[in-house]
Design a protein around this nucleic acid. Structure first.
Lengths: 267, 267
DNA sequence: AAGTGGTCTAGACCACTCC
DNA sequence: GAGTGGTCTAGACCACTTA
């Protein structure tokens, strides 16, 4: 074996942690519980401290905060670590950063809510239900003008038009109306949706590079009402989504959720 | 002055770009247009290339992709750069990463939609309208059970209950019903909402550390219908939001948008 | 036990923007 | 022109997880 200096575990040259014994205590002091990744010189710890200063109005909306170099010096860490912390806060709308102008606490913080829209089957199963999908109607149609417009297609192109119902333990969960561009996905015409929903089929078989998604409320049509077991005209939460693969439209779909459905997230 | 070697502009020790002359050409070749930040060895360029390989099914859903070290070698960049590129893709749900297990193309990519919810005034003004807010009703009430539950308060606490209407060029835009915890924000009781809406007042005067937000559809109540100029029972898109500052509830608000409103984003 | 991602550092150059 | 954030590098240690 190669002989090694006695201080076995060699620290990297550039990591002179200020006072080796202090971190655990500081950690506990930071709020009652010792978080593994929230040491004061970790990016998460710095982020938490910045959040605290904004919440405690040490830095007020509109204020310019110290530059990355200053903060790095204060926290005893590399500038890249401060950068990582501040970028996250800027992404979530709490800070506004501009070169030369510096970093400011946002005056009108844009609340960014990140909604996670899982594959429907997973959503149903996560809620403990047994998932199923049933085709209600399938036909090939000439693209109606409004649909063609949303898909950036010329009207009259042939599309598969599909209506279906997603259920949880047999109860209606989601009503789906979909149009699929056969020019982009010719295999879709003969796909079998007895075990896999069209949604899932497309996810697995047709990647996309771009999409638009809208959230809206709509009054249940008579067909939707019948399928979902709701009253006609009931207010339904709906999602409309269109996807393209390099400018070639793939599909346009409108999902109407069962009555009372809400989509939630934390901010 | 300290004497310096003659080769004036000193490159940092660790930046041996492979072949100095090739990058511009590679850049042009990457897709027709030379993007400033998309050189093949930038994290954005790497991200784009990974996206392309997934879209072109070079790497299929479920496949494990090469490790960061391998990719760094392939792209001729540092591992940190690859890490930055891959982390972004993991955040957007396209990749799944686990230590030791490596990085895989997501089988069921969770579609993450990031909604930006600006201060209402800014949203109206961005659409070219003139913004105004009008208080319809203001009272102090004992917290109703459902509201108290959502705010994590004991029922019976005193809250300010406020109904108001946001307008664009005089047209109804958004109906707001809000409860505010006077224990957390005593100044709210005497605040003046003739020039600043309660929403904006709170943003500027009361930071929060945690919040919940829900998106849903609701049928217009008679009061909402009257204020928004819609039919009673019309399907309205609504947002419900509750915010806390370190476990102290601040406000609970329900925003019902004018008929036909939709919230959109790109994915 | 070992492999892989997660994070950090010190230093450097660069791009953007304000003055 | 100069200040600030954006990005990159090479190297290192560490945490987590699976074999």
């Amino acid at each position: 074996m190669v002989s090694r200096p006695a201080h076995g575990k060699r620290r990297t040259a550039c990591r002179p942690r200020p006072h080796p014994g202090e971190l655990p205590e500081d950690n506990r002091g930071a709020g009652g519980r010792a978080l593994r990744q929230s040491a004061l010189n970790s990016w998460q710890g710095i982020q938490a401290e910045i959040r605290r200063r904004i919440a405690d109005r040490v830095w007020r909306p509109g204020d310019q905060i110290p530059g990355e170099a200053d903060l790095a010096a204060e926290f005893g860490c590399a500038r890249a670590t401060v950068n990582r912390a501040l970028q996250g806060l800027a992404d979530s709308g709490l800070l506004e950063r501009r070169r030369k102008a510096g970093t400011r606490v946002a005056l009108d913080p844009v609340r960014k809510a990140t909604l996670e829209i899982p594959v429907i089957r997973l959503e149903v199963e996560a809620a403990g239900g047994e998932y199923a999908y049933r085709v209600l109607q399938k036909e090939i149609v000439s693209a109606p003008a409004p649909v063609a417009e949303k898909m950036d297609l010329s009207p009259g192109v042939d599309l598969v038009h599909l209506r279906g119902l997603h259920t949880a333990d047999g109860d209606p969960f989601l009503y789906e109306e979909r149009w699929v561009n056969l020019d982009s996905v010719p295999e879709f015409e003969t796909a079998d949706f007895t075990s896999v929903s069209p949604n899932e089929w497309l996810v697995r078989n047709q990647p996309f590079t771009r999409g638009e998604i809208s959230f809206l409320a709509e009054a249940a049509s008579s067909e939707q009402a019948a399928a979902l077991g709701a009253a006609e005209g009931a207010a339904l939460f709906a999602i409309e989504r269109t996807t393209w693969n390099a400018d070639a439209a793939i599909t346009h779909v409108r999902l109407a959720y069962r009555q009372g459905y809400r989509m939630s997230t934390e901010i």
